[in-house]
Nucleic acid binder design. Structure first.
Lengths: 214, 214
DNA sequence: CTCTGTGAAGTTGTTCACAGCC
DNA sequence: GGCTGTGAACAACTTCACAGAG
């Protein structure tokens, strides 16, 4: 499937996931064909950008015609490796962790959350959306017995170092960190740091900047 | 406060919000001084990157010494414009919207959510964490009477177009979009699109890529 | 003529190397 | 010596301009 690129450029990778979301919507509407120009308009980018992003793959468009939506989706899904099941655990079953455990789009996309972990007695032993919640003390043992690809961190920031010690010692392949601290990648583990408050701050800056531009 | 840069480079802006999170943690620990090298280690970047990012501001470090944590925080906060109150509404009071309405770090950072909107009868008229929930039909009138800087979208994706029509017609300055579709910026409105499922997909790709590299 | 695909040019972001202050 | 600040060199990404297929 890959052509020119040894691995997808960082920003291409990000955009491709966005393309995918729009393609799903198009497919749901019964649209079977799309041009780079039409897609770029939805995405707020340019047609050339779309085509350049796709240049990493074997040609998936038809000149004079455009792209077949279904084929387009398939190629991206294969490239992202989301055509297989990935097992996930959620560490910290607060409002956000619990929201993720209920989130249908995740399971639809084959990310299956198989356990939650928390230190609160009233949560441990219960189920959230059918998913068992275990005590954080059991995490180390659990990771020895179960193959987990992704660990999601939705716990208080001061509990992160302890949990990360356990995770770095395990076979977990990636961490999605939703706490306001940075978790760096290393040889054995990928990571992604998301902090929604930071996004609010970025919007604050943009608002301020635009106001000044008057 | 600004020096060389007419506006902050895109990636500098993003990193600065990350620096801020680490600086808050340092301050909470009572640490008053930090070097670019130490900070860069926490962030998974380089000391030069940190210093380059700061080159947009009037010099805030001392050669041979490092940066004063409190001053560092102050400069960033001022630049981001988060030293003032910003009013926020949440459209779609599901699990995620509700989690945001409870999120302490948001109000601590002066982002005050003053209303939620939903179409579900059983939610309208109630309060979530003391914040009133109104019917989405009231949104247009509400935006005429209240100055809102940021609208957060946490509603089903098929309801987005209708809501965006109202918002684009209003004085809302920015949208934080948590639905899996793209909302583009225009002259009157900034936006930021976040889709956590896309982040899972990016991790999937990274896991696959690392596995292949063996 | 329409739309994809892609080297080449242009722009933006990162790293290097070192000057300047503590 | 230690650490900041920055022009210059380098690398990554985006846009341009156009060749090529339907």
């Amino acid at each position: 499937m890959k052509k020119n690129c040894k691995s997808l450029p960082k920003y291409t990778l990000k955009r491709i996931t966005d393309y995918l979301n729009e393609l799903y919507l198009l497919k749901a509407k019964g649209i079977t064909r799309i041009s780079s120009r039409e897609l770029s308009k939805m995405m707020g980018t340019t047609d050339v950008q779309v085509r350049k992003d796709l240049s990493c793959f074997d040609s998936i468009g038809k000149r004079g015609v455009g792209y077949d939506v279904t084929k387009f989706i398939k190629v991206i899904e294969t490239e992202l490796g989301i055509d297989r099941e990935l097992s996930v655990i959620v560490i910290g079953v607060g409002r956000l962790g619990s929201a993720l455990m209920h989130y249908k789009r995740l399971s639809q996309a084959k990310f299956s959350i198989i356990a939650g972990f928390d230190i609160a007695k009233e949560k441990v032993g219960k189920k959230v959306n059918g998913i068992p919640v275990m005590h954080s003390g059991e995490l180390e043992g659990f990771l020895l017995k179960n193959r987990i690809e992704i660990a999601v961190l939705t716990l208080p920031v001061d509990e992160v170092p302890g949990v990360m010690k356990v995770i770095r010692n395990s076979d977990v392949k990636a961490v999605l960190n939703l706490t306001p601290t940075m978790i760096n990648e290393d040889d054995g583990m990928a990571s992604r740091n998301l902090d929604i408050v930071s996004d609010f701050k970025i919007l604050s800056y943009k608002i301020k900047e635009r106001a000044n531009a008057d």
